[in-house]
Lab assay of single mutants.
Amino acid sequence: LVRYRTISKIPQITLNFVDLKGDPFLASPTSDREIIAPKIKERTHNVTEKVTQVLSLGADVLPEYKLQAPRIHRWTILHYSPFKAVWDWLILLLVIYTAVFTPYSAAFLLKETEEGPPATECGYACQPLAVVDLIVDIMFIVDILINFRTTYVNANEEVVSHPGRIAVHYFKGWFLIDMVAAIPFDLLIFGSGSEELIGLLKTARLLRLVRVARKLDRYSEYGAAVLFLLMCTFALIAHWLACIWYAIGNMEQPHMDSRIGWLHNLGDQIGKPYNSSGLGGPSIKDKYVTALYFTFSSLTSVGFGNVSPNTNSEKIFSICVMLIGSLMYASIFGNVSAIIQRLYSGTARYHTQMLRVREFIRFHQIPNPLRQRLEEYFQHAWSYTNGIDMNAVLKGFPECLQADICLHLNRSLLQHCKPFRGATKGCLRALAMKFKTTHAPPGDTLVHAGDLLTALYFISRGSIEILRGDVVVAILGKNDIFGEPLNLYARPGKSNGDVRALTYCDLHKIHR
């Protein structure tokens, strides 16, 4: 019993810090008490220290592992850092350059016999395009090294910054494609005289377009951006097909006994025919423009016929181009109408809503002055909100995010209106959640004399007048207030005048 009563005193000691020596009952000389009392004092002292730490809000209350900052290894790049964003855009520009100039170089340097010394005699450094290609190869190699040090988000939505895990993730992902696209074939085969082989191998750079397509997928929600990307894709495919079309004609031209190829026909049409040795002929500019003209006309199913396939190889390629053109029509131009419709969806919704308003007016036989006010209010409210119901949009977000959005939407009023000066951010967040926005066209009466005042109004834009009878008592403008002081009276009061809008007004109100 003594032991039980001794232990039962522990909660009292913990909360009230009572010393055991003052209790005459606990001072009985028993061996059990002498053993338990020192333990009680020690526990009391420890609990006292913990309570003191909690009340003082000291940093040592938290466990040590929670006080440590997340460790980022040296030379690790955050995937959302500004440097990584700028670097990704730079790589994107280099990939676009590669997609345009690599097929052009591979096709127009394929057994090209233009006048001038061969590239091997001039030297590697004197070729501007080769120098640019070398810079692109170096940048792609540097990009691989950067990807080995860039964080990523795993399946659990955690940012991984450990170098080993980053390397394994990159090896399992895009490393092989990036490595093949970054191989400097110019340096590996330079001086061997195989410019045709170098041009063909350099087309491996186009593998990076797969990554670019995935990154550009984030802009699919913007109709104008999608339309622009589709047109660029169409032009890029036409450019690639033009390079292939020229390569076919250029390879067949020296081996044909009869002059029936499209390059021969082009030379005869523009007065620059090929001679018996295969030299001469149109310039590279004429060849490229004509090839691009043929691919565009074939892809769009126009086909004027002034550039036509004559050999079997050219006919087979033309059939493939027609098939590609039909697929592009289905996948690209078939979506253009939907994209344009999405661009004008706001206008369509406006006309639909206006039609419903006019049908309501016609069905209920609203008189002319009231009908005009109804239409003007709808037009003004639509121009202010673009038909978007803010309350319906915010309803799907958590309250903390709703408060931040409301604070942002009402920031101008909260910053410049005098009653809100000096208020804490928590108070402003709470008030912003209570605001209701209303609009009024010129001549609209917001409050009639004798109406119950259940709200306090803040003028965000425009001006109003307060009338008693036919006498203008006051004219209020931006950041002015009218209405009933909230919670100042037990019952809502009545208006002693009319409140009429002089201009288009936007008002925020808080109800009782």
Rank of each mutant, 00 (worst) to 15 (best):
F378T: 13
M390W: 04
G346T: 13
S412N: 10
A423Q: 05
D178V: 01
D178K: 01
Y344P: 03
H408C: 03
E112V: 07
I324R: 01
I284Y: 01
S412E: 12
K215Y: 03
F294K: 01
A430K: 10
L209C: 05
A242M: 01
L67E: 03
L413D: 01
E221K: 08
N386V: 05
Y219M: 10
I270H: 01
C427A: 09
V210T: 11
I166K: 01
Q253V: 13
Q402W: 03
H364T: 06
R205Q: 01
R358W: 02
Q269N: 03
G396N: 07
N265P: 01
I189P: 13
M328A: 04
V302L: 01
H79N: 02
E376Y: 09
A69P: 05
M231C: 05
C417E: 09
T424N: 14
Q415M: 07
I270P: 01
N265G: 01
S412G: 09
L343G: 08
K285P: 01
F304C: 10
A242F: 01
D137I: 01
W89K: 01
C406S: 08
P419C: 12
R74M: 05
R205M: 01
S105C: 03
K202Y: 01
S298F: 03
C400Y: 10
N265E: 15
F190P: 14
A238Y: 01
I332E: 03
S308K: 01
S277D: 06
F140D: 01
L109A: 06
Y104G: 01
A213Y: 08
F296E: 01
A167E: 01
D133V: 01
G123A: 06
S308F: 01
L374S: 03
A392M: 08
L200R: 04
C400S: 04
K202W: 01
L90A: 09
V289G: 01
L209H: 01
S192C: 11
G267E: 01
H364I: 01
V95M: 04
P128Y: 05
G164L: 13
Y170E: 01
K425C: 04
N306E: 01
P103F: 01
I177R: 01
N335V: 03
E375R: 05
N391H: 12
C400G: 10
F101H: 04
T438D: 08
I340L: 04
K111F: 01
I248K: 01
F140N: 01
T437N: 04
P82V: 15
V100R: 01
I135C: 04
G422Y: 01
Q402V: 04
A225P: 05
L176F: 14
G281P: 03
P419D: 05
E158T: 10
N310I: 01
M251V: 01
K285M: 13
R358N: 07
I96C: 07
F175S: 01
S383G: 08
L227H: 01
N312V: 03
T98W: 01
V86L: 15
A119V: 09
A392T: 05
V226A: 14
P369E: 09
T113M: 03
V142K: 02
I189N: 13
K436C: 06
T437S: 08
Y124S: 03
Q402I: 04
A235W: 01
V95Y: 01
S298K: 03
L292A: 01
P442W: 01
M231W: 14
F228P: 03
K272I: 01
T102V: 07
L299S: 01
I198V: 11
G193I: 10
L394M: 09
R218H: 05
K395N: 05
C122S: 01
E64K: 12
I332W: 04
D286Y: 01
K436T: 12
A182Q: 07
L431D: 01
M433E: 01
I237M: 13
S337D: 01
L109F: 08
F101I: 06
S297T: 11
K436M: 11
Y104T: 01
I138H: 01
K66G: 07
I405Y: 01
L145I: 01
Y246W: 01
G249D: 01
P184T: 01
F333V: 04
T438C: 12
F363C: 09
Q372H: 09
L428Q: 13
H169A: 09
L370D: 01
S297D: 11
G396D: 15
R71F: 14
L292D: 01
R259E: 06
H79A: 01
L207S: 13
F296D: 01
T76A: 05
E195M: 14
Y274V: 03
E375A: 03
L207T: 13
G443V: 02
L200M: 11
E252A: 01
A403K: 10
I340W: 09
L370K: 01
N275K: 04
K272H: 01
P82G: 14
T347W: 14
R74F: 08
P367V: 03
N312K: 01
F378E: 07
S194V: 15
S220F: 14
L109K: 05
R356I: 03
I198G: 09
I166F: 01
H351T: 05
V336Q: 03
I361H: 01
H448N: 14
A449C: 12
D286A: 01
V136I: 14
I166Q: 01
V159Q: 03
L394A: 04
Q402N: 01
E375C: 05
D137G: 09
G325L: 01
R71I: 14
P282L: 01
G281T: 03
T120G: 10
L431S: 02
T295N: 01
I332G: 07
G303P: 01
G422E: 12
W240E: 01
A403T: 05
F234H: 01
P442A: 08
I146N: 01
H79R: 01
I183W: 05
F363G: 01
T424Q: 13
M179R: 01
K111A: 08
T120D: 01
T300H: 08
I248N: 01
W382V: 03
S383C: 07
Y274K: 01
N265T: 14
E158P: 04
A338T: 04
M433S: 06
S220P: 05
L428F: 02
V302Y: 01
S337T: 11
E359D: 04
P273D: 01
D444M: 09
T295H: 01
R373G: 02
L299I: 03
G261C: 01
G164P: 09
I388N: 06
S277A: 06
L323I: 07
S283Q: 01
T150Q: 01
T233D: 01
S277N: 15
T352E: 12
D186S: 13
R349G: 09
I405D: 01
R218F: 01
T424H: 09
E158Q: 12
L92F: 01
Y80G: 07
S194H: 13
L409K: 03
I146A: 04
F175T: 01
L343S: 12
E376L: 11
L209E: 01
T438P: 01
N156W: 05
L176H: 04
L428T: 12
F360S: 02
I270D: 01
Y97L: 01
A338F: 15
P163C: 05
A119K: 15
E359C: 01
C126D: 01
L263Y: 03
H351R: 08
L94A: 13
P442L: 03
I183G: 05
T233A: 14
P82K: 04
S105W: 11
C122Y: 01
V321N: 01
L92P: 01
P128H: 03
A225W: 15
C243K: 01
A449T: 15
G271A: 01
I340K: 03
A247N: 01
P103Q: 01
H439I: 07
I324Q: 01
E359G: 03
I91W: 01
I248W: 01
V168S: 09
Y170P: 01
C427S: 05
S283N: 10
T290M: 01
G116L: 06
V226N: 09
R358C: 03
A235P: 01
T347P: 04
V357I: 08
L145Q: 01
T203L: 10
L207D: 01
T352G: 10
